[in-house]
Amino acid sequence: MAVKESEKVFEQEGQNFNSMVPGSTAKKLRTCIIWQFIRFVAINIKMIIVVSKSH
């Protein structure tokens, strides 16, 4: 059975074995222009709220 690309980084005896890694969909969404435009708007709104609470 083929090992998924995102899971090849784990080392059974290594320091990263208990880490969480993103799957292929999560990684593609990170640079998906349409999805990231939506996130751009959402993150900006969140940041503006935090900035306004801090002044």
């Binding site: 640079t31 435009f37 996130r39 751009f40 993150i43 900006n44 969140k46 940041m47 935090v50 609470k53």
Partner: peptide, 14 residues
């Protein structure tokens, strides 16, 4: 409610 984080292209644009 005001402590969050995510990684992506949107962060780079910002």
């Amino acid at each position: 409610d005001y402590t969050f984080g995510e990684i992506g292209l949107a962060g780079h644009w910002i």
